[in-house]
Structure formats: structure tokens, C-alpha cells
């Protein structure tokens, strides 16, 4: 596994969304090339056999060998040692595994690692700039928007995207658009306050 620094990294949420549009187009092109490649007998990969893939996570490029069935979540946690992202249900129901792919929030447990080779993945470990926390992280601490912390990485990634999507016009809107992330400690009203507060700073 090598880890090379990616020279330019967009962290501004709105820029990330613009970028994701471009990346979406690139992904379509890539799918076409994959289809061609698998049709060519010179590069056969048996079903289930490990493949070498590349993942860009928090601005670093990683090469790893995984079976195609390995989820992005398990690739992050078990292969790359990025255990900040949590596994709550492994079925896309709780949101604890939420990460950003080109700025969009996705459940990494319902995503295969091989599917996201061209995306820039951001996990909770990739938000702070050294000692300086991301405004959403700061707001979560300031508003006590967590208790046990089990859902918190997912909540924070979801909140970053929620603000970026512009779904923070009112507390009601925040409640709706943050309802994909379960918090069993139910720190919800503090989460809403944190998202509203961070949104003021970011937008």
C-alpha cells in the first residue's frame, strides 16, 4: 500500500459539489472503459478474486488489494485503519458510516470500494486542518451534539453535506434532512443547533 499526497484538495463544500458534477461525468466515462476492459480476454478477473484498486481518501491516494465484495466501509476500517467511520447496521439504515464521495454524503456500508475509485472520499478524520477543527466539528462540541459518539462521525459528515446542499433554511428543514442519521442517545436537538450554527459560519 502506498500513500501519495494528492497535490490539490478541495475542502470548500460548495467547490466540492461543483467538483462532484465533473467527477460524475468522469465516472460515466470510466464505466464505459471498464465495460470495454472486462470484455477483453487479455485482462480476465474471476468473480470474487482480489483486485488491486486505488482509493483517494482525505487527500491521500492508497493502493490496496481487495475482493470486489469488500465495502467501502470495511476497506476504510479494516484495510486503511481509518476507524473513525463507524459500522452501526451494515444495511444503510443508521447512517453511522456516512462519508463524503466528491462532496456527496453516502452510506459507505452500501458502497463497494471498487465503485469509488475515481471519487475523492472524505471521512471524519479528513475534516480538521491539523489542530484546527472543521466548523461543524467545533459546533458539535460547542452544542454538546453527541453523547456516546457512536453515530457522531456519520452525523458530522452528513451535517457537512446537509449545509453544503443548502438544507439548513430552518430547524424543521434541518430535522428532516438530518433524519437519515440515527442517534440512539438522541442528542437531536443539540445536533440541530450545531448544524444551524455551523451553517451560519459556512454559508
Amino acid at each position: 500500500m502506498t500513500a501519495d499526497r494528492v497535490p490539490e484538495r478541495s475542502t470548500h463544500p460548495r467547490r466540492a459539489v461543483l467538483k462532484s458534477t465533473a467527477a460524475g461525468a468522469a465516472a460515466v466515462a470510466h464505466l464505459a472503459s471498464v465495460a470495454t476492459a472486462t470484455a477483453t480476454p487479455t485482462n480476465p478477473v474471476a468473480a470474487g478474486e482480489p483486485v488491486e484498486i486505488g482509493l483517494s481518501v482525505n487527500g491521500r491516494r492508497h493502493r490496496l488489494v481487495v475482493e470486489p465484495r469488500v465495502t467501502l466501509l470495511d476497506a476504510l476500517r479494516e484495510r486503511l485503519g481509518l476507524t473513525g467511520t463507524k459500522k452501526g447496521c451494515d444495511r444503510g439504515e443508521c447512517g453511522a458510516c456516512t462519508v463524503l464521495a466528491d462532496g456527496d454524503r453516502i452510506t459507505s456500508c452500501l458502497t463497494l470500494a471498487v465503485m469509488r475509485q475515481d471519487a475523492e472520499i472524505t471521512t471524519v478524520e479528513g475534516l480538521a486542518r491539523g489542530e484546527e477543527l472543521h466548523p461543524v466539528q467545533e459546533a458539535f462540541v460547542r452544542h454538546d451534539a453527541f453523547q456516546c459518539g457512536g453515530c457522531t462521525p456519520g452525523q458530522i459528515m452528513s451535517a457537512v453535506a446537509c449545509i453544503d446542499e443548502g438544507h439548513t433554511g430552518s430547524e424543521t428543514e434541518i430535522r428532516e434532512w438530518m433524519s437519515g442519521n440515527l442517534c440512539r442517545c438522541a442528542a437531536y436537538q443539540n445536533i440541530v443547533a450545531a448544524v444551524a450554527d455551523a451553517a451560519k459560519e459556512l454559508r
Partner: peptide
């Protein structure tokens, strides 16, 4: 006062039982 473990929990640095290498 704010939680003293807040920073660890919002950065993903807090190691839960399944997070230990």
C-alpha cells in the same frame, strides 16, 4: 463545561472496542 472527550469523538480519534489495531 464542554465534554473533555469531545475532540476525540468529533475527529474520529476515539478508539471504540472494534477500533483497536
Amino acid at each position: 463545561v464542554e465534554r473533555v472527550d469531545g475532540r476525540a469523538k468529533v475527529t474520529g480519534a476515539a478508539r471504540y472496542a472494534a477500533d483497536n489495531e
